[in-house]
Design a protein around this nucleic acid. Structure first.
Lengths: 131, 131
DNA sequence: GCTTGACCTTGTAGTTGCTACAAGGTGCAT
DNA sequence: ATGCACCTTGTAGCAACTACAAGGTCAAGC
């Protein structure tokens, strides 16, 4: 499998795949006679894993941890569990933050009833000091 | 007002303030005899505005737009309004995305009933191909 | 008057996770 | 043999900071 094929199969750009290899996230591929990268099904599975984890919001560092963990089949599951739990917490915090952001923006919109910027409360509200 | 004081007052690092100046987001400050930046209350208001807008999720480019708009007090409010509306839509979309992320992570957590990584469904699920 | 320490200056490089070239080599169809 | 899509390496860029390094300034304390 050449890099373009793997790219298509995983919805990843070829440049990103090479970047993962450089970063040690993916193992280096074999090379053909003409120096093209030649990928196996293992690579496909690994890249799928990486992309899925990234989509779930795990950082590269976390993906590295997950990959390391998934290699040691005999270790207890607890650490993987812990990583997922952390990620879930982060996501939940982001949702909370964004929700209050949304409320502020809605307030901002409602405050704009004048029709000239000079009277527009939006610009004013933004210039208020922090609480 | 020196940069450290302004930094403290706005919850911004001094380096970030200098960065804003370099980027033209903030006007350059006066200098003291010893070449220290010397800020006015106008700078304080401007920086407060910028930080608040950034906290609300506006990009630097959008902040630039807002600043330009707020300078021309005679233009209709519509343009500011439009920016806020766009921003609100983005935030709402992010909330939707993160919510489904959260659901997936919860599912993932629940799927882990084994106690060895070799049998861990989390690791398995991550390796599944994309839908 | 001299040192200590907190502050300030500029400039440059690092961060995260890619993305976008540029300049050239390869493979295959026409 | 020519075109075209693909591949290679290397380097630079993106956002929005953040982190030095190497040096200048200022007020306080001894």
């Amino acid at each position: 499998m050449r890099i373009g094929e793997l790219a298509k199969a995983t919805g990843t750009k070829a440049e990103t795949i090479r970047y993962y290899e450089r970063e040690g996230i993916l193992p280096a591929a074999d090379r053909t006679d003409s120096n093209y990268r030649d990928y196996s099904d293992n690579h496909l599975a690994a890249l799928t894993f990486v992309r899925r984890a990234r989509q779930l919001g795990f950082s590269m560092a976390q993906v590295r941890e997950l990959l390391a963990l998934s290699d040691s089949a005999d270790k207890p599951c607890q650490e993987v569990d812990e990583l997922v739990r952390e990620q879930l917490e982060e996501v939940e915090q982001k949702i909370v933050d964004l929700s209050s952001l949304r409320n502020e923006l809605r307030l901002l919109l409602r405050s704009c009833e004048a029709n000239r910027i000079g009277e527009c409360r939006i610009v004013e509200s933004l210039a208020l000091p922090f609480k």
